[in-house]
Design a binder for these strands. Sequence first.
RNA 1: GCCCCUAUCGUCUAGCGGUUAGGACAUCGGCUUUUCAAGCCGAGAACACGGGUUCGACUCCCGUUGGGGGUGCCA
Length: 482
Amino acid sequence: MSRTVRTRIAPSPTGDPHVGTAYAALFNYAFAHTHGGQFILRIEDTDRTRSNQASEAMIFEALHWLGLTWDEGPDVGGPCGPYRQSERSEIYREHVKRLINAGHAYPCFCSKERLDKVRARQQAEGSTTVGYDGHCRAMAPADAALRRGEPHVVRLAMPREGQIVVKDLLRGEIAFEAAGIDDQVLLKSDGFPTYHLANVVDDHLMEISHVIRAEEWLSSLPKHVQLYRAFGWEPPVFCHLPLLRNADRSKISKRKNPVSLNYYRRAGYLPEALLNYLALMGWAMPDEREEFSLEEFARLLELERITLGGPIFDLEKLSWLNGKYIRGLTVVQLLERLRAGLLGDDYLLQVLPLIQERIETLEDFLDYGRFFFVGDVAYDDQALKKLVPKGRTPQDTAKVLKTLLDEHLDPLLDWQPERLESILRSFCEAAGWSPNELFMSVRVAVTGRAASPPLFDTMAVLGKEVCRRRIRRAAGALKSIK
RNA sequence: GCCCCUAUCGUCUAGCGGUUAGGACAUCGGCUUUUCAAGCCGAGAACACGGGUUCGACUCCCGUUGGGGGUGCCA
């Protein structure tokens, strides 16, 4: 009870920095501060194929922008490091060994094919439990030792019967039938731990007192609790936050909502307004005041008061709040905000070289460079016509743009001219479009005009978020054409 | 399919057995204003349904329905 409060945010660096990460970080940060504890940043990069350095850097950057500073983390260090899971492999391996020796875990040599087959059969039979069937659990330790050289994973030996009762701060006790939970993989065949293992081991070793995370983890809580038991550790307090939702109530996603923190930053939302809005999701101040600072939030947050209905992330209300914050600034402060972004030297110095050769008077600058500074661009009839190459239909064009965006541009984190060019060029072949066709279409989508500075440089300067939303919008506009 | 969570205006929420069910966004109307915003004032708008418990349920319990999440060698 008197234990120091230590909370953490544990993002996985596999994409653009996510608004859900900021949401969880906000509550963890605030709770730690309410209780004079520490807030820790841990990078969960155990998925070697998806984890990526650019993503990690963007997460740091985005959280710094928001002002959610951490007391311990990969960049600032701390007594419980390293804070990057990829650098802790030895720790996990040792802990797995302990579990195996105690009979709480076992090696599993089942092939992917067998696993798929088992799952397919269970599904076909309408079996009540779908998951690993425990095939290798019966293997004698001596036999397993003999096969040590073969590729294998290590699984957690879950109790076969009875109930696993877990406790969530907001929901109270929740009982799961042990029979319905399969033996989770703890150590992958590449030697890296799964989330389940790594998060339990690290939370324990890093002395995390309160695990405040998204509700999507609630169903794996019994596995985590079982791990704490197997290790003989005292589990932390668990508090599962409601999931942010799209307007249709599904879990917030990039197809239906801007989810990248970079979007909000570029669009000109003030970090304190975003944080304030996020704090309103599932939380209300005791006096119902809706505008408050991070400090006030950190002073008054009580986890018990969090509401559990999944809140819809409402851009309209966010924008209203943001407007309030902007109006609350002095003119000089407003100028500073502008200079920190769209009207800052950094950005202007990127834009100007692309415009310089194309203007004759300084006042041409605004007219010509307009699309570098606005959010959406308008597509007039002429632009709409240029968007669709001769001989192509609006529908085809919309489809090509969407595919380009979703499958090729969206996963790109290193948003540089060279990368963009190679992606667009190879996409031409895949789509069966000529570079002329595709590049003009993308140019118009991204700038609103048929004439612009070199496409890839322009896209690079505009940034991923702006390109994304404009291409998306262009595709949408095309679809509504007859 | 199975497991788990969840349910107050369109949206975010207050409520914690007895209230004309309150506030905010959005919407609509008015005032202000050269215009547009902003600001101010006002209006419409909710306890999903069915059983209990109780003198009394939005509040407690059970069920139904709706919504969500999970069911990966992803987190």
